[in-house]
């Protein structure tokens, strides 16, 4: 049984880990490129509507985009305060409809000149929200002169393609 006898003496060869940092660095760079900084904490449940890829466009200039979220608050304390209904979130807080206009105007003022001209409001609305609140928001946007609007949506996984 000499073939199996000297097991304890056999040493495991050491794994060469010198390329590990390079590997991790490339993953790091990948993530730095594909992702963007999270600007605000989303406090409402925004499950975006789904749409066919053919009609969806991608935002080119992220610095000229203002986000408006509509959905039911996710936190229990917010729900207790605002009720179990669809709310509007501007910046980091849940707001009323009358604050939309000032929010858009302030957002526009804080932008660079180039971005002001191509300013776009991304409406991130939950797919189950009702049109009432969406129309109210749109009406405010029209009053604020923010006519370029993007109805944010997710890609629909299309079958048979």
């Amino acid at each position: 049984m000499s073939k199996f006898g000297n097991k304890e003496k056999a040493e495991m060869p050491e794994l060469n880990t010198s390329s590990l940092p390079d590997l991790i660095f490339s993953i790091l760079f990948f993530f730095m490129i594909v992702t963007s900084m999270r600007e605000e904490e989303v406090k409402v449940d925004v499950k975006l509507p789904k749409g066919s890829e053919r009609v969806l466009t991608e935002i080119e200039h992220k610095s000229s985009v203002i986000n408006v979220y509509v959905g039911v608050p996710t936190k229990a304390e917010d729900r207790a305060r605002y009720g179990d209904r669809n709310c509007i979130q501007l910046n980091d807080k849940i707001s009323g409809i009358n604050e939309v206009r000032d929010f858009v105007n302030d957002g526009r003022k804080s932008m660079k000149q180039v971005d002001q001209a191509r300013m776009k409001v991304a409406l991130k609305v939950n797919q189950h929200a009702d049109m009432g609140i969406v129309t109210d928001v749109k009406m405010e946007l029209r009053q604020a002169g923010a006519l370029n609007v993007l109805y944010s949506a997710d890609k629909l996984a299309e079958k048979g393609e």
Partner: peptide
């Protein structure tokens, strides 16, 4: 700290 780019949407003009 980052989030995936999910800036797709339907572009409309009011």
């Amino acid at each position: 700290v980052t989030s995936m780019n999910s800036s797709l949407g339907l572009d409309v003009r009011l």
